[in-house]
């Protein structure tokens, strides 16, 4: 038993070590895009007509007048010290601004993930089971539409249908203006529950439904396809035939033999889809006026708040690295072939 867990520990440590170069590459990439590409970040903040003096002063304030490698080192040091600078507009600490918006995106992404997993896995499994019927082809088209569709447009169509036409769900925002939620964890749904604010909870959850479906349907495309083809493949495996020959019930074969074996790669796919989910969330938040990281990014670009833009993108890189790590660990945990 102890050798097993030490094996797992070793695996986790080696994964963590592998994540560090990935993070460094991403941070460097961001640096290259924001500082090295043609285009001067100073003009991001002040207009070129602002006058030599102001331009130079801003350049100095941002540290952009130092040699490029020095900027690179201090940028990396800043990230690893947890110092992302101050917003150029509000002068607030970038971390604390992000801290207010990140939980909302996490909440949306989590709900979206559940919707995606539910839609993708159930449709994909059923389509594999009925692959010889029309449903197989229909599902192939549906799943392709899901991930080749403009997410923001799908969200808007849902708003038109459910908020304008049928008037069953609110169109935008995360909370009615007459309500408020005391901030504890930052996750609005959780905070509303903790403080026993049921009216706010219900209102908030109702407002989460459309954005979650929007994001979830978008992500479900990949999951659906992968589940579909994996279950199909698994149903043709020899161990499925052997199980049938033992008289195991079809339902058990579908779920315990075919689906369960197919889910292991699907979990890796969820990790790879995390990036798509973040992309999708920028658009979804914009459409539904949700004050998460995506809205923050778009707004700070338009407000030309350079330190904030950089900070947000860096946090995205951190998130990606962490999620990659978590998925690797979950993967190791559920597959008996790696668990050893």
């Amino acid at each position: 038993m102890s050798s097993k867990s030490s094996g797992l520990l070793f695996y986790i440590v080696s994964r963590i070590l592998l994540i560090i170069p990935m993070l460094l590459i991403l941070l460097t990439l961001i640096f290259i895009i924001l500082r090295v590409l043609p285009g001067d970040p100073v003009y991001f903040i002040v207009s070129p007509q602002a006058g030599e003096h102001i331009i130079e002063q801003t350049r100095h304030e941002l540290g952009l007048d130092r040699p490029i490698w020095e900027q690179y080192v201090s940028y990396l040091m800043g990230v690893f010290r947890g110092d992302l600078g101050k917003s150029y507009i509000t002068k607030d600490n970038v971390w604390s601004i992000i801290g207010r918006h990140l939980p909302i995106t996490i909440e949306l992404a989590t709900c979206g993930l559940f919707v995606a997993a539910f839609l993708g896995i159930s449709f994909g499994t059923f389509a594999a089971y009925k692959s010889k019927s029309w449903f197989g082809v229909f599902n192939t088209i549906l799943s392709t539409i899901a991930y080749t569709m403009p997410v923001f447009w799908f969200g808007m169509i849902l708003q038109i249908l459910f908020a304008i036409q049928f008037r069953v769900l609110p169109a935008t925002g995360i909370l009615d203006t007459s309500l408020s939620i005391t901030r504890i964890t930052g996750l609005p749904a959780l905070d509303a529950l903790i403080t026993g604010n049921m009216r706010a909870f219900v209102d908030h959850v109702a407002r989460l439904i459309l954005p979650s479906i929007t994001l979830g349907f978008f992500i479900s495309g990949n999951i659906n396809r992968m589940t579909h083809s994996n279950v199909l493949k698994a149903l043709n495996e020899d161990y499925v035939r052997a199980a049938r020959a033992r008289g195991i019930k079809e339902r058990v074969i579908l779920f315990k033999y075919a689906l369960k074996n197919s889910l292991i790669p699907v979990i890796t796919l969820l990790g790879m889809n995390f990036a798509r989910m973040l992309s999708g969330s920028v658009l979804t938040e914009t459409v539904f006026s949700i004050p998460g990281m995506g809205s923050l990014l778009v707004n700070s670009i338009f407000r030309r708040d350079y330190p904030l833009v950089q900070g947000i993108i860096v946090v995205y890189a951190l998130l990606i690295s962490i999620v990659t790590l978590i998925i690797d660990i979950i993967y190791a945990y559920i597959d008996p072939r790696i668990r050893l």
């Binding site: 991403l26 990036a275 973040l278 999708g280 920028v282 995205y316 990606i320």
Partner: peptide, 8 residues
């Protein structure tokens, strides 16, 4: 790079 959100 591939792991980073393409839109972002």
């Amino acid at each position: 790079i591939y792991a980073f959100p393409s839109l972002i």
